[in-house]
């Protein structure tokens, strides 16, 4: 299973902050997961259009080609605005 988290404006748009997903065959990195989620249609298209989307895998900043394995925690969020 993958644990997927959404934060801030993305969490509001998608109407959820977290979900669990069986790692689908053929999805091996962040980019693959992003394509799969975007293909859900509707508000999920936001994942493809939101400006400067950021990703983290297991609580570390990640890249589109960062590999994914079962049990990973993946997070999607807009650029950070703390401080």
């Amino acid at each position: 299973m993958l644990k997927i988290l959404y934060f801030a404006s993305l969490r509001e748009t998608l109407g959820r902050g977290a979900e669990s997903l069986e790692l689908p065959g053929g999805v091996s990195d962040v980019s693959g997961l992003l394509q799969l989620l975007t293909a859900r249609g509707g508000e999920w298209g936001q994942l493809a259009t939101v400006k400067n989307l950021r990703y983290a895998v297991n609580q570390e900043m990640a890249q589109l080609d960062s590999p994914l394995r079962a049990g990973d925690e993946v997070a999607f969020f807009p650029p950070v605005t703390g401080g």
Binding site: F7, A8, S9, F77, P79, V80, T81, G82, G83
Partner: peptide
């Protein structure tokens, strides 16, 4: 901290609530 720590600000203004842009 400003660019790497995962915090997000949502502010309430007279025009309504909005997420702060980076």
């Amino acid at each position: 901290l400003k660019t790497r720590a995962p915090f997000w600000k949502r502010e309430v203004t007279a025009e309504g609530a909005r997420w702060v842009d980076a």
